[in-house]
Design a protein around this nucleic acid. Structure first.
Length: 494
RNA sequence: GCCGCGUUCGUCUAGGGGCCUAGGACGCCGCCCUUUCACGGCGGUAGCACGGGUUCGAAUCCCGUACGCGGUACCA
């Protein structure tokens, strides 16, 4: 038997912005496909019109594209298995649901939601629409055939439910968890077709995975309890089920699934678009996410997407949930950020500065500032704060730095230096000359470097730390620097 | 409640009977480098949930307990 072409799918529901967990699921699918020379399919599961969010699909597409995970097949890029939106495949589900009814694996049910609610209240939370209760409900198993036909033809709302076999056991091999087993008696008669004529996830998912030739289903662990229902469906249709792989959940540092609310409480951004808008490095997010539940088995931590494609293995995915660690993400981001050319970062930097109402200056100036700042920021969002002095003169001076740097004899020293560098005009106002001037002044005064260096930094930047002082001064330019030192002397002289 | 899944440093994890005095990474702390802040380098801190087995030997295998998480919809 030849190994069939690997086909995997990422099947998000367009009910909101793409979640970080969704991106990881997409990533693992993508990596598995690439690693095995397979196909990565994107399928939009929009069968719940009540939860449909306008723009969500576009966000999913945009987020995947940003991360470099574009699908081989999906809406807009037909690969012969389309359409890839479930809302456009309704006819298919109807047909297959009818087939199941005919073969005796499913039945019509006319119970209203209120009636089910009532039954639930009568028995308590434990109520299940299953092998023992279905005989007491209003469905094609309890009603006469004529009655059923009458209700159907009169347009009475109905659902189609899966008839879960009695006393059966469903077991399957999960690629990350090993053997998993469930008793059929624990499974209730899933609704397959809703009264609005659309399928539920369970039916649509199974039908599409089969129709689209999906060989491996790689999805989050929250689907594990649904897997036996799907297995039952494959069995009812007489189809070979795909290989299952349920990924560990991404958890909040506070515990529990990383939901929007929990994430926000922990200062974690959950939507991919947040990372895009805050100008994170896509490569960093991808690398970080890849390691949330997987590792290559050696001690390397840094992988580009291409490198991940070469080493990713599903059997190295761990079983337990992984806590989202913002610090580690920042570390990855800092790493990839430093590898960038300042020129490439110009637009993103401008956007971040604009958020703070800062003027970025011309390209050459901004690129210079980015170059000096890159090593001391972890994300571009930190640029405005870390480099504020490049974009506006200090209005106040860091108190601790003042205390440390500004002494009784500072004004004299700094004025001497000021006079010295005033003489440097045009191109002569550059780092090496500025440094030489400072060395000359301290030597003549017989003091240490810090005596003058610190005050000058304070005067020019307003803070006690930052990039190389002389390069900073050169970039800022003569007029600006002389002005800043002058006003600092005025403001800080007692 | 019931069903399922899980449990190695604070976090991500390596490990799959002797290589483990449990390795790496992030974080944290210290030192070095340095005009400052970073980067970088070096070093340190800290962990096999618990109880029973099996075995000459268990982080590794088995059972139980505890705890955590997920699911339990005409949502995905």
């Amino acid at each position: 038997m030849t190994i069939s072409q690997v086909r995997v799918r990422f099947a998000p529901s367009p009910t909101g912005w793409l979640h970080i967990g969704g991106l990881r699921t997409a990533l693992y699918n993508y990596l598995f496909a690439r690693r095995n020379g397979g196909t990565f399919v994107l399928r939009i599961e929009d069968t719940d019109q009540k939860r449909y969010v306008e723009g969500a699909e576009a966000d999913i597409l945009e987020s995947l594209r940003w991360a470099g995970l574009e699908a081989d097949e999906g809406p807009g890029s037909n690969g012969g298995y389309g359409p890839y939106r479930q809302s456009e495949r309704s006819e298919l589900y109807r047909r297959y649901a009818a087939q199941l009814v005919e073969s005796g694996h499913a039945y019509y049910a006319f119970d209203t939601q209120e009636e089910i609610e009532a039954a639930r209240e009568a028995v308590g939370e434990t109520f299940k629409y299953d092998a023992i209760t279905r005989n007491k409900m209003k469905n094609s198993l309890t009603l006469s055939e004529a009655e059923v036909q009458l209700r159907l033809s009169s347009g009475e709302p109905y659902v189609i439910r899966l008839m879960v076999p009695v006393g059966d056991t469903v077991a399957f091999e999960d690629m990350v968890r090993g053997k998993v087993r469930f008793e059929a008696s624990e499974i209730d008669d899933q609704v397959l077709m809703k009264s609005d004529g659309l399928p539920t996830y369970h039916l649509a998912n199974v039908v599409d995975d089969h129709e689209m030739g999906i060989t491996h289903v790689i999805r989050g662990e929250e689907w594990l309890p649904s897997a036996p229902k799907h297995m039952l469906l494959y069995r009812a249709f007489g189809w070979t089920p795909p290989v299952m792989a349920h990924l560990p959940l991404i958890m909040s540092p506070a515990g529990g699934k990383l939901s929007k609310r929990k994430a926000e409480e922990q200062g974690i951004m959950v939507n991919v678009r947040d990372y895009i808008q805050n100008h994170y490095e896509a490569q960093a997010l991808v690398n970080f996410l890849a390691f949330l539940g997987w590792n290559p088995g050696d001690e390397r931590e840094l992988f580009t997407l291409e490198e991940l494609c070469e080493v990713f293995e599903l059997d190295r995915v761990s079983k337990s949930g992984a806590v989202f660690n913002n610090d580690k993400l920042s570390w990855y981001n800092a790493h990839y950020l430093r590898a960038r050319n300042p020129e490439e970062l110009l637009p993103a930097a401008r956007a971040e500065l604009a958020k703070h109402g800062m003027e970025a200056g011309d390209d050459a100036f901004l690129a210079g500032a980015i170059g000096l700042l890159l090593e001391r920021i972890e994300t571009l969002a930190q640029l405005p704060e870390a480099g504020a002095f490049f974009f506006k003169a200090p209005e106040q001076y860091d108190e601790k730095a003042v205390k440390k740097a500004w002494k009784a004899d500072t004004a004299d020293l700094i004025n001497t230096y000021l006079a010295e560098i005033s003489g440097l005009g045009g191109a002569a106002f550059e780092a090496a000359a500025l440094k030489a001037a400072l060395m000359a002044v301290i030597e003549k005064a017989g003091v240490g470097m810090g005596k003058l260096m610190l005050p000058v930094r304070l005067a020019v930047t307003g803070v006690g730390g930052g990039p190389d002082l002389f390069q900073t001064m050169q970039l800022l330019g003569r007029e600006e620097v002389l002005g800043r030192i002058g006003s600092a002397v005025q403001k800080l002289a007692d």
